[in-house]
Write a protein that binds this DNA or RNA. Structure first.
Lengths: 238, 238
DNA sequence: TCTACCGACGAACACCGTTCGAGTCAAGTA
DNA sequence: TACTTGACTCGAACGGTGTTCGTCGGTAGA
């Protein structure tokens, strides 16, 4: 497998040949971080907490990882490996784009709010690149102009990541006892009543459409925005 | 001006009648927070830092603000007051939607990464509601089905906020010495070279279109995504 | 066998959000 | 007028955070 050069702005912290046999490794650290993020969310991921998984102090991690930000980036790229990348079939490019978007969205939702790591910088890890390459291939093979494909890729991932991140932030406010479903229903009910009680002189439309505004779950809304984007994209086909 | 009821899930911390004349007030606290966010970014906004503007300790703030999260929400709603809300002109609804989107985006970009506060919860402050109401009015007056208008509103704001937030996170990584322009150019150059040096067997499309992928500044990309969304939206008009 | 040197790791630094409890002072009441 | 009440201020403290520093130990190469 060919080598990917390191992105130039990342400190080459791990490129020195490790001399002693190490009880710690970057992979293990990323594993531990992912275990914590799945169990307790990203706010539980602290350097001390990750180090505690190896019965050591936080400072031990800094030999393998430049800082917390880099650790989160590595964790994000790891989960990008779970996204499937189909072979392009130009005839059904729209459906393929949507499939990849749904898959990416599902993966990022599975790992709580790790999506923020993707918002913070341009993902340059091998797995993230693999996903981008596949999406680009689908659009180009469908005959999309390169500039349109390039920018669409950017905007689509922004949308996917932002939606996953927003959902994860909402989950964070959830009381630990409640189920996701009943928390969500209670939230929607409160919001609908709040909209319905707004003064009619200043907010006639929000008030009148309180029910419509609060209808639809996260998946329906994600799908609706995805349709908007892909429909808007299809207009650029020659 | 008619009263907006408090959203039910917010602790009614400020609804008690304040008896003594207060040297501190919620408005002043929000002002101080905004001053800090403009000067040094949202990460510089801490309860101690805000309190220091009044020569006091952090605990003094908790009489006027439930916690930091509420303070950020209040700050966000304050800046929403700077967004212009035009009267609907059905004939040019698309342009009006884009104008409001650009205006909202510009306001949120002006105040560094305060946009995250908007991602965290559904904005229910008076100014945020005013903006939503105006956008809803434009779409409904153009003949858009209510359900489409409702979900579009949600998706459009997600897009606006996410783009502003992403940009602000990039700004955060900037070295303090550099100008925004030269930092951005250096970043793009590095990224283009990185893409161009990728192995051709695994990433042929990214490698071949390295220049195209990295072309266009933040405004162009925002505008492109906005076009995608609004074009996709226009298809729902009867 | 000796000597570098890399990695582990405890301690410390400078922060953070929030809580607690004592003190202060104006307004309402007897 | 005297007393009580209660909101507000605010120093101190608690339990966290990311990161740095300096020491120490053990392995690899000479």
């Amino acid at each position: 497998m060919s080598e990917i050069p390191l992105p130039p702005w990342r400190r080459a912290v791990a490129k020195r040949p490790r001399a002693a046999k190490a009880p710690l490794s970057q992979d293990q650290i990323v594993d531990a971080g992912l275990r914590i993020v799945m169990a307790e969310g990203i706010d539980a991921v602290s350097m001390r907490r990750v180090a505690a998984a190896f019965d050591t102090g936080a400072s031990s991690l800094y030999a393998h990882v430049a800082n917390k930000e880099e650790l989160l980036q590595l964790m994000f790229d790891r989960i990008c490996g779970e996204v499937h990348t189909p072979e392009p079939e130009p005839a059904r490019w729209q459906e393929q784009i949507k499939e990849m978007a749904r898959d990416s969205h599902a993966v990022m939702s599975r790992y709580n709010n790790l999506a923020r790591a993707a918002l913070a910088t341009v993902p340059t890890g091998p797995n993230a690149l693999r996903v981008s390459e596949a999406m680009l291939a689908i659009m180009l093979s469908a005959g999309m102009p390169p500039q349109v494909a390039a920018w669409s890729l950017d905007r689509l991932f922004l949308y996917i990541v932002a939606d996953a991140y927003e959902n994860s932030l909402h989950m964070e406010n959830m009381r630990p006892g409640l189920e996701t479903r009943e928390y969500f229903e209670g939230f929607v009910t409160q919001l609908r009543d709040f909209y319905g009680d707004l003064p009619a002189d200043r907010f006639p439309n929000i008030r009148a459409h309180a029910t419509t505004l609060t209808s639809g779950d996260g998946d329906q809304r994600f799908e609706f925005g995805l349709d908007m984007l892909v429909d808007g994209l299809a207009r650029y086909l020659p």
